[in-house]
Design a protein around this nucleic acid. Structure first.
Length: 120
DNA sequence: TAAGTGACGGAGG
DNA sequence: GCCTCCGCCACTT
C-alpha cells in the first residue's frame, strides 16, 4: 500500500529547517528570506508551517524567524510570543513592542558560506 | 470538488 | 506606524 510517499513536501520542510539552522546567534531572518534561501521563493507560509512541525531534537532556532515587517508573528502577550521574545533577548536581540530592528539584527547571509553549509 | 484556514507578503489608505 | 485587502499556497474538512 501507498504508505511511503504520503507527503513529498516533507523534503521542503527539511530544506527549511536546514536553512534556519544556518542563522547565526544574535541575528534574525524573515519567513520570505528563509523561503528564498531554501530554494522556495514566495513560499513564506510554508516556512511558518515547517517551523511548527520542526522536531525538538533538531534544535531549530525558530525564534530567529520573524515576518517581513520585523515583527513577531504571535499575538502580543500570548504564550509563544513571550517565549520567542525571551529567547531573542537572551541572544541580546532588542525586542520592542514585538518588533525587532531589522536594520540592526537582520541576517545577511554570505553566499560562499551558504554553499559550504547547505548540502543541496 | 469547494470552501475554509494560516507562525506570510506587499500595496494602499 | 497601524489596519485592511488581496494574492498566494499547502493542507484540512
Amino acid at each position: 500500500m501507498s504508505l511511503e510517499s504520503t507527503k513529498p513536501v516533507n523534503i521542503n520542510y527539511q530544506k527549511i529547517w536546514q536553512t534556519v539552522l544556518c542563522i547565526p546567534k544574535g541575528r534574525v531572518a524573515s519567513y520570505g528570506q528563509i523561503a528564498d534561501l531554501a530554494g522556495l521563493p514566495g513560499k513564506a507560509r510554508l516556512v511558518g508551517r515547517a517551523l511548527g512541525f520542526a522536531p525538538k531534537k533538531l534544535n531549530v532556532p525558530w525564534q530567529r524567524v520573524i515576518n517581513s515587517q520585523g515583527k513577531i508573528s504571535f499575538p502580543i502577550g500570548s504564550e509563544y510570543f513571550d517565549k520567542q521574545k525571551g529567547l531573542l533577548q537572551s541572544e541580546e536581540i532588542v525586542v520592542l513592542n514585538g518588533r525587532i530592528k531589522l536594520k540592526e539584527f537582520q541576517w545577511q547571509p554570505d553566499l560562499t558560506e551558504l554553499l559550504f553549509t547547505l548540502q543541496y
